[in-house]
Design a protein around this nucleic acid. Sequence first.
DNA 1: ATTATCTATAGATCTATAGATAATGC
DNA 2: ATTATCTATAGATCTATAGATAATGC
Lengths: 212, 212
Amino acid sequence: MFMPEHAHNKEHAILDAAEHEFLTKGFDGARTTSIARAAGVTHAMLHYYFRTKEKIFERILDEKMRLMGESVLTAFGTPGLPLSERLRQGIENHFDLIAANADLPRFVVNEVFSRPERYEAMRQRIRRIMEPLLAGLQHDLDEAAARGEMDSVDALMLLLDIISLNVFPFLAYPVLEPLLGDLAGDKARFLALRRAENVEIIRKRLQKTPQR
Amino acid sequence: MFMPEHAHNKEHAILDAAEHEFLTKGFDGARTTSIARAAGVTHAMLHYYFRTKEKIFERILDEKMRLMGESVLTAFGTPGLPLSERLRQGIENHFDLIAANADLPRFVVNEVFSRPERYEAMRQRIRRIMEPLLAGLQHDLDEAAARGEMDSVDALMLLLDIISLNVFPFLAYPVLEPLLGDLAGDKARFLALRRAENVEIIRKRLQKTPQR
DNA sequence: ATTATCTATAGATCTATAGATAATGC
DNA sequence: ATTATCTATAGATCTATAGATAATGC
């Protein structure tokens, strides 16, 4: 028989359908019957492959949390560049990764940030990823500050500035759109402007205040 | 009989309980039975006063959307101040209003930003509030830029910077906490630092780049 | 033999309402 | 008379599973 790359056609179809259902409706709003229908399988198949709704959800959530965490890491990971350049690329890469998964932030806020029972998994993941990143970044920031090239800042605060600025527009876009004036409808152009703004504001944040 | 200020003890108790239930669990996760139990009334009373779960929810959502919109307006509304001072106060006021309703952003993101069927109400509200505010702000920014006091910026971009920076930390706080190091557990101090950082980054954003 | 699939249904909730009864305000 | 409250239950979902049947791989 003709075997596609992914083992288990149906298992894969279920996961795809589940991803869409959970991302758009959240765990509570998602229906296993809808997932089965969208995947083109009988409802009983979901339980055959995954036993429970919860277990399917965990599969999806896990992958999304990993993606979210790694978006930060891969974005800022490029070594061997001057700090200001590394930050600029980091902001742009991070922004682009979010843009490529524009419904991800909302999903994570919905399903993780608002569920104490799911904090722990996310916290550990974040700690493992961010602590080394922060330590390295702080070191480089301090050096640049000592050389008088940059304002002295706390690495966590700087990274939180960046993530706030990069993520929030994607959360709020639907209600932002009517304010865009001539940009309304042209999401790509708005996002390009936003990306540039985020680079610029961070650049100026690090700029040394001129002495008077 | 002793009449409390709010007409209908029970109606009010139901609304209070509903607010908590909907804010913590969202519409889909909320249970009318839980609301009734928390309000100390029989389940049938909910339907007597509000007919449906949807209608109770609308009451809560409406109030929260209003609060969210007005937090921006009242924060930046103080007139008769120099622009830089007005912005500083605006950022601080807005931050404080969010801090006083720390679960509000998550609720709005959950229930409005992710539900196309609820965009429209929010959009109109935002438009009515933000358009005059943006127009006035842009005017003042342009004047200051013309006088050479400030960098020239787009008012919407600036306001989006501010709102992103002010709101996001409240969304993400639960998973941010383990990264705070010596600040962990001392939420108030972290928030105070964050508030100051947001004022500072916007101040620098508006600072004229020194000519070289 | 094992794995995959289907039909049918159990069992658990959850929202909503019907209908009776008690309290309240003219 | 009207308003408030309760008990009991209808009706609609939804998740999960039992048990039969078909397909697959040694």
